[in-house]
């Protein structure tokens, strides 16, 4: 073999530099980065891959525990980043996750449907576990919805804190202590005392005398009803008998 063939052969045996694989996968958006963000309700770790958020977790249990949890739940490794992309950071601080993309990785189709539906609940409003189950076409799967939300890997952005029990109790919270669920809802402007009072009196719907539409109590339309025009209902039949139809936005009852 002459020198040219030999050298060409050697050239074909050249090795990509150390770290090339990792750098390339990150450039393709195939590697998760993480960073810490300070919010009004405490520090959070955020993980993302490309422009998709893959995890959010309270930082109070420490980095080690976050990395272990991510490895076991998501099944990928994480690399530290300088900071969180501005879009994700702003969404976290405002607890507004609707404009972002998500990486649901290993989650089942059912779990993904639950999270996507939960993402639709507007800021400052709440829905019941039963509502989520009904909306995704699985009205019998109320408990399974609860389980899926308890394992929500992206709390705050996927607002599982806005899903509460049908009896007015707040229920479990994936993002931490149940008290935290209260704090976040208060931060979003929800009047919890008023909601508890309605639940205690078994009032589930609010209607408007002018439009003859009935809503879930926290629906943005219900909150605009003037006090004088507001009617409370305990059951769907009661509202229908009085000549009211369900709101098309908050869909308070089965279609």
């Amino acid at each position: 073999m002459n020198m040219v063939e030999e050298a060409l052969h050697e050239l074909s045996a050249a090795r990509a530099p150390d770290g090339f694989l990792e750098r390339t996968l990150r450039a393709c958006g195939l590697r998760d980065s993480y960073a810490k963000v300070a919010t009004p309700i405490g520090d959070y770790f955020v993980a993302w891959r490309g422009n998709r958020v893959s995890a959010v977790s309270r930082a109070d249990k420490g980095l080690e525990s976050f990395l272990n949890w991510f490895a076991s739940e998501v099944g990928r490794s994480l690399e530290p980043a300088e900071g969180v992309p501005a879009l994700i950071r702003r969404a976290l601080l405002a607890t507004r996750g609707q404009g972002l993309s998500y990486d649901f990785g290993q989650l089942t189709e059912f779990e993904q449907a639950v999270l996507r539906k939960t993402l639709e609940i507007p800021r400052g409003e709440v829905r019941s576990y039963g509502w989520v189950a009904r909306e995704i076409g699985r009205p019998g799967a109320v408990r399974a919805v609860g389980t899926a939300l308890r394992h929500n890997p992206i709390p705050l952005l996927i607002p599982c804190h806005r899903v509460v029990r049908g009896d007015g109790e707040l229920g479990n919270y994936a993002g931490g202590h149940p008290e935290l669920k209260k704090d976040i809802l208060k931060l979003e402007g929800l009047d919890l005392g008023w909601l508890e009072d309605l639940a205690r009196r078994h009032k589930r719907f609010l209607g408007s005398r002018t439009t003859h539409v009935f809503c879930q109590p926290t629906c943005s339309h219900a909150r605009r009803i003037a006090l004088d025009n507001r009617v409370e209902f305990s059951a769907e039949q009661e509202a229908r008998a009085a000549g009211y139809r369900p709101c098309r936005d908050c869909r308070p009852v089965a279609a």
Binding site: L11, A14, A27
Partner: peptide, 26 residues
Amino acid sequence: QHRLFALALGMCGNPHDAEEVAQDTF
């Protein structure tokens, strides 16, 4: 990665540009 890096190296003549080209390709 290695074969493609070698190809880029042959086309660019230096490892710095070769890495950029190989990464951009992927």
